[in-house]
Design a protein around this nucleic acid. Structure first.
Lengths: 220, 220
DNA sequence: GTTTGAATCAAACGATCGTTTGAGAGTACG
DNA sequence: CGTACTCTCAAACGATCGTTTGATTCAAAC
């Protein structure tokens, strides 16, 4: 049976597991969230995870794949609209990079939790996961780096990658709401994130425009 | 018995546990590193952790306290040398904020591992841990914010805290070497970190100097 | 109606977790 | 010497972990 029995009013077991896993991984981490918590939150049987995904690690990968595929294609689509043009501003490219992440964190499909999962993945330093993310992120990162390089001819390739990395770190950080700044309870979450994005874009644009370092002893 | 029996050639059990815990927490996370791994790496008995620290959570807190106390005092000392002067540049204050973290990650006392532990703590989002860090970080953050505010009169208090938070996020990520940029194997780790600090300071200085946003709908 | 196969379920598997226990080693003090 | 006290140790505690098993349910195929 591929589709749900009587109409798809209730989501698939697989989807319910993915949703619950996303939320719980964001809250407790990959090691901290157990499959019993996940299956309980999804209101499915414990064995369903291993039946549908094979293992906990495979489930984690699937949580990433579902969101990253869309995030990547959205970023590339946004980049495609501004890349290579005469009139392109640095802020436009930054927006193409940052805005999809913001949208992802804003829509009510559960993407908000995923942004925190993403931030966690950076911190977990798991090599398997890192390679998985690099395969997805590295691809679009190179395209953005090329465009940034075009708009910032004074910067070397090394500089570009360094600063893009800094932006990514700050973006991940800000979107995940990990910082010391706590959202005021009277400010809606989407307003909070909108402000974060604006602050970030302005900050990053200025940072990227800074003159090249390239006087250091190290090669990078 | 307070000191080691025959000379302190071999470090204390407590210190060996703290060192091993720091390294393993950095690599596998707080939930991912077991006390059996920690005690095995420290070559002490499993029960030693609960004997000396009471619990795993207390051990985690102690790992933080040991390093944060020194990091905070160093930052304040560096800030004290430049704060309030007529000639102070923005880069000087940034250096006072960033450099101690760099030094911490560079000296061979095991501080390098702690920087990654620190980054992990941000990601873990554990409320207890967050409050613990806020009690330590919040204190110095306010002092730095005041000095940044003096040097950047065009920015509101909200802007200052936002940007300091962004800097902290980028700093934490860069120092922890979490980014997509992988250190080249032929570049020494301290050179890598030195370059990271230079890139970060330059980037952050430009970002902080960006004009205020303050046209958003939200209050922050 | 019978068969087939995907999906779900309760239950248990062995492994590992943080923590506790109680005995024993070793030093210091009377 | 004997007592007191700190520390270490092997062993076990109950709890929870990810995973597997075998029975059961149920709609579709023949």
């Amino acid at each position: 049976m591929t589709s749900a029995p009587y109409a798809s009013r209730e989501r698939t077991t697989k989807e319910r597991i993915l949703g619950a896993a996303e939320t719980l991984f964001a809250t407790h981490g990959f090691a901290g969230a157990s499959l019993r918590q996940v299956t309980a939150a999804a209101r499915v049987n414990l064995a369903a995870v291993n039946y549908h995904f094979g293992s906990k690690d495979k489930l984690i990968e699937e949580v990433f794949r579902r969101r990253l595929d869309e995030l990547n294609s959205r970023r590339l689509a946004a980049l495609g609209k501004v890349a290579g043009l005469e009139t392109t501003r640095l802020e436009d490219v930054l927006d193409a990079y940052i805005r999809p992440a913001l949208d992802l964190s804003r829509n009510d499909g559960g993407g908000a939790a995923f942004v925190r999962v993403l931030a966690r993945a950076y911190a977990e330093h798991n090599e398997t996961l890192r390679r998985f993310l690099s395969d997805n992120y590295g691809h679009i990162l190179r395209q953005f780096a090329a465009e940034f390089g075009r708009l910032l001819p004074g910067l070397g390739k090394e500089d570009i990658y360094w600063r893009l990395d800094i932006v990514t770190g700050a973006l991940t950080y800000a979107m995940a709401d990990f910082g010391i700044i706590q959202r005021k309870t009277d400010v809606a979450e989407r307003d909070h994130r909108e402000t974060a994005a604006e602050q970030l874009i302005r900050f990053a644009a200025a940072g990227l425009r800074a003159p090249s370092v390239s006087n250091a002893t190290a090669t990078r």
